[in-house]
Design a protein around this nucleic acid. Structure first.
Length: 576
RNA sequence: GCCGAGGUGGCUCAGUGGUAGAGCACCUCCUUGGUAAGGAGGCGGUCGUGGGUUCAAUUCCCACCCUCGGCUCCA
């Protein structure tokens, strides 16, 4: 197994080979940049006509020629001025612009065969080392990611050190497509999004709404057990509120237009925090009450540009599992640790045990509060993280303008990571809302405030859950835990009694009494990913038993009714 | 928002300058069958919307809307 650095070098070199192939096939293109990325590489080209997917095999073919020729990668150091002059003369204005931005007097040019490119390197020794690669897709992009600048054509590809790794990756892409939560949502009849309601606005069907309700109940119970108080705040609020919070000034491009009610402008809620702070402000608070922990499954609406909507993962209306903790400065560290542990406990319950944890610190320029307070807060967050067993990275300057934060990304069963939990420190709102508590000396003191979401949003989390489990939700989250099937009409009454018994024991069950062959019913129910199928024919009826079959074709054989009920109840209790 | 690809019955998708087809689903009938599709018949679409070209447009052209893949952004 080669290390990450070597893989990046391989992929980066593959992007050069691709650029060489493209320049060979399309002499009119100008080249821009071609980095390695998490799963492969890309290269941006300037070309008036778009590439089509049909171009990819031609480019791959050309790449194979270059690889076969086994050109060495030769690094030449040039005077920067000369390089810029050369790029300008050959019309490579993007390369010239990149060179101009490089510090120092010299730049490196890497050459392989007839193709040369401004590049920091490093590269592999020769093109022949790239053996296992595939071009994946074409896409539009912009020079420097700015849509007012030139439109580029981006080609994505990937490369590995072995055919096995490449095949595994391509298989994973296929598997990810099959697991797409939008497809699963439709196939399993969980939710839909329709034009008449509008993009990014989710309709929850009975089964999806039931799963959501199971999640919500667990979540509420979990928070009540852990010292939180549940709140509920309105979906619209006077603009005045968002003027106090500052959202009107800093967040208005994500807010929906105002509506006028009795001459006063109102807005749809984009954030829950202002409402929570208004609740805090309705009375005086003693230091003895702190920390005060408020939580709400708060639905918010944010304007997202149409191009970015993506099923449940990026919607316009969504429900945050929001919480705000008001804490005295000296309690901050302890409370941060508590929240972190809650997040991990909850994520584990849902079956996510691998995380990427990130501490995002003060942005370079735009921020509120004193630098000294930021540093103190960051220090306390870091000390919190050090007390946990988890590794974390520091995202320098990645914090919000109002405070540093911890983000927890979860890794799903395909190794993809998703941002869910976030714990954010806030220097801004306590000031803006002028919230305070009365300290030991009877004086007003400014508390700290922490925003936290453990799941992120119910919509996104549900989408991630669906993809993680490929729709086969654990029993405790399955909207239908078992379907009872009869063989023929002789067992209909017996099956109805079973259904009643299951329901009385809190099992989410249904009865498929259709006049269909058992194989047909099994097939349909199995495709709906129901955890258990119970078959009751005359054999079972006569012996007071059920024949059970677990998801994944596992025949459990016949067992007494109560044995089956106990089995389900145990799995439910263990959150399996 | 920008670039690209698409919008055909509830779903998945064929197809065509002469106003449409399959499979699944649905309905009816036959079938009562022991672990991933029993059989027959039937209902169902002004082919995303609005213009244009044409004797004739679902098909060609233009605009718009929406979806998808990206860019950017984000819970």
């Amino acid at each position: 197994m080669k290390n990450k650095k070597e893989l990046e070098t391989l992929r980066h070199s593959a992007s050069h080979i691709m650029a060489a192939a493209v320049c060979g096939l399309f002499p009119e293109v100008k080249i821009a940049i071609g980095p390695s990325i998490e799963d492969g590489f890309y290269y941006d080209f300037y070309k008036t006509e778009s590439f089509t997917p049909e171009d990819l095999p031609r480019i791959e073919e050309k790449m194979r020629e270059i690889i076969k020729a086994n050109y060495p990668f030769i690094c030449k150091t040039m005077k920067k001025d000369e390089a810029i002059k050369e790029f300008k003369e050959s019309g490579e204005k993007f390369k010239a612009e990149i060179a101009e931005g490089i510090e120092g007097d010299t730049v490196n040019i890497y050459q392989c065969g007839a193709f040369s490119d401004l590049c920091r390197g490093p590269h592999i020794n020769s093109t022949g080392e790239v053996k296992f690669f595939k071009l994946l897709s074409v896409a539009g992009a912009y020079w420097r990611g700015d849509s007012s600048k030139e439109k580029m054509q981006r080609i994505y590809g990937t490369a590995f050190f072995s055919q096995e790794e490449l095949d595994a990756y391509l298989l994973q892409i296929e598997e990810a497509k099959k697991r797409d939560h939008r497809k699963l949502g439709k196939d399993l009849d969980f939710f839909s999004i329709c034009d008449e309601v509008g993009g990014g606005l989710v309709l929850w069907h009975p089964k999806g709404a039931l799963v959501r309700d199971i999640i919500e109940r667990y979540w509420k119970d979990f928070h009540l057990k852990n010292g939180y108080e549940l709140l509920s705040t309105p979906h619209i609020a006077s603009e005045e509120l968002y003027s106090i919070s500052g959202h009107l000034q800093t967040y208005s491009e994500n807010m929906y237009a105002p509506m006028e009610i009795e001459g006063k402008p109102y807005r749809i809620k984009p954030m829950n925090c202002p409402g929570h702070l208004m609740i805090y402000k309705t009375k005086l608070h003693s230091y003895k009450e702190l920390p005060i922990r408020y939580a709400e499954l708060g639905s918010v609406y944010r304007f997202e540009r149409s191009g970015v909507l993506h099923g449940l993962l990026r919607a316009r209306g969504f429900t945050q599992d929001d919480g705000h903790v008001i804490v005295a400065p000296e309690m901050l560290e302890e409370e941060m640790l508590k929240i972190f542990n809650l997040a991990v406990e909850m994520l584990k319950t849902f079956g996510f045990s691998e995380y990427e944890i990130c501490l995002a610190t003060r942005p370079e320029n735009k921020f509120v509060g004193e630098i000294a307070s930021w540093e103190a807060a960051q220090k306390s967050i870091e000390s919190t993280l050090q007390k946990t067993q988890y590794k974390y990275e520091i995202d320098e300057g990645g914090g919000a303008f109002y405070g540093p934060k911890i983000d927890i990304k979860i890794k799903d069963s395909l190794g993809r990571s998703w941002q869910c939990s976030t714990i954010q420190f806030d220097f801004n709102l306590p000031e803006r809302f002028d919230i305070y508590y009365i300290d030991e000396n009877g004086k007003r003191a400014r508390p700290y405030m922490i925003h936290r979401a453990l799941l992120g949003s119910l919509e996104r989390f549900f989408g991630v859950l669906l993809e993680h489990y490929s729709g086969a939700l654990p029993l405790w989250l399955s909207p239908i835990q078992t379907v009872i099937c009869n063989i023929n009409d002789e067992q209909t009454e017996y099956c109805k009694d079973l259904l009643e018994k299951f329901k009385q024991n809190g099992i989410r069950a249904s009865f498929d009494g259709r006049n269909e062959k058992i194989g047909h019913k099994i097939r349909e129910i199995a495709m709906q990913k129901v955890p258990y199928i119970v078959v009751a024919g005359n054999k079972e009826k006569d012996s007071g038993a059920v024949s059970a079959r677990a998801r994944g074709n596992k025949d459990l054989g016949a067992m007494p009714i109560n044995a089956f009920i106990e089995k389900i109840k145990k799995e439910e209790a263990d959150k399996m």
